[in-house]
Simulated assay, not measured.
Amino acid sequence: MAIHPHTYPSYINGHPATASQLNPLAFAGFAHFTAMQVRNARMKGLDLHLDRLRNASLEFFGRAPSDELLRSQIRMAMQEGASDQSLTVTVFSPHGEFTADSMDVEPAVLVRTAAPSDGPKGPLRLAAIEHQRPLAAIKHVGEVGKTYYLHQAIRQGFDDAAFVDERGCLSEATIWNLVFWDGDAVIWPRAEMLKGTMMGMVQRQLERLEVPQRREFITLERLRELSGAALMNSWTPGVPVTAIGSHAMDEASPFIELLHEAHEAEPAECP
């Protein structure tokens, strides 16, 4: 029997999660995850999410849940929940963190569902903060710095924070990928960062649309030469950015429209 569409259940290893199972995860965990949006019981970029989960599991645990297992658990959560929802898949050690017992174990899978989100419309202004995320290429839990620097940015009068690495180059933002526009080409930061699934979808669709793309070192000084900037994550392919630190930027509506066009071209599927 389907759960009421306004109820968003969670599952561990394919079974409804109990409070006693979830309570420890609220405070600790050696885990990584991926987040996605479901619309009309379909999702985009599932192959990218599965690749992310597989690669991070091999890095953390030396083994990974099969794609077939993950697909079945995602499919069950979608079928039992609302046709539009946010869905997060977390792969974690059942032995928690700060212990050798979490090494080389068969990881467990938590699938959480929640209300759908399209993210903010923007435009957003970003504080420029020196910070490098640990294990930046992996989407892992326990990153207190992202919330801390978000709060610091708000206290400075900004909406969110962009990170500047030790070379003085922009890498990513708190829960976002950064992307830039020079009027002709889409520019991705050349830096240690997480390659988002939305980023992967947009990149391959821009390639299909024959839109030029390249990776560059983007310093704050370089911003004055660019025509636009945006944020993207699993919520949205493009939120306009109108300031990074003291550097103001135009909203660049054609650029934002291009990013949304690329995402719209990505096919949706059932797991």
Rank of each mutant, 00 (worst) to 15 (best):
V89G: 07
A191L: 08
S83R: 13
A17W: 10
W181Q: 09
R167K: 14
Y11D: 10
A243V: 01
W188C: 07
P116I: 01
G238E: 02
V109R: 09
H15K: 15
T147A: 07
V211C: 04
V239N: 01
N233A: 00
D84M: 10
E207D: 05
C270F: 07
A153N: 02
A230M: 09
I3N: 13
P237A: 02
L53F: 12
N55P: 02
E269L: 07
D84G: 06
K139E: 03
D51N: 11
G119Q: 02
H15E: 12
H4M: 04
G157C: 08
D182H: 15
E264L: 01
T99G: 03
E251R: 15
R71G: 07
G81M: 03
D160E: 14
S171N: 08
L53C: 12
M201R: 14
L258D: 02
P271W: 10
R63N: 09
M199A: 05
H95W: 14
R204S: 03
M232P: 08
C169A: 04
H151M: 02
Y149D: 01
A229K: 13
T90C: 10
Q85E: 05
I187A: 11
M232Y: 10
H95K: 11
Q37S: 13
P189A: 02
H6I: 10
M249L: 04
E207T: 14
G245C: 02
S66K: 12
D184M: 13
A19M: 13
P189I: 06
N233L: 00
V186H: 13
V105W: 08
E97M: 09
A252T: 12
E80F: 08
H6L: 10
P254G: 05
T236M: 03
V109S: 03
M199R: 14
T88H: 14
I129R: 01
Q152P: 01
H6G: 09
V89H: 09
A35K: 05
G196D: 01
N177V: 07
E225M: 07
E59F: 15
H131Q: 11
A35W: 06
T236C: 02
A127D: 07
P123K: 04
I256K: 11
I12Q: 07
N40G: 08
I129C: 01
E97Y: 11
S72T: 15
A243H: 00
Q156D: 05
M249D: 00
P16F: 15
Q203G: 05
A161M: 06
T7I: 13
T34D: 10
P240G: 01
A153W: 01
L124F: 05
A161R: 07
H49I: 08
I218H: 02
M199S: 09
R133L: 02
S10K: 15
A108Y: 09
N233I: 04
G29H: 08
D165G: 10
V91N: 11
E192F: 08
L258M: 14
G183D: 08
P24C: 13
T242I: 04
M201L: 14
L223V: 00
A115F: 06
A128G: 06
V105E: 04
H95T: 11
K44A: 13
E269C: 05
P116L: 00
A229C: 14
A268P: 10
E166Y: 10
P134W: 12
L259F: 06
S66I: 12
L194H: 06
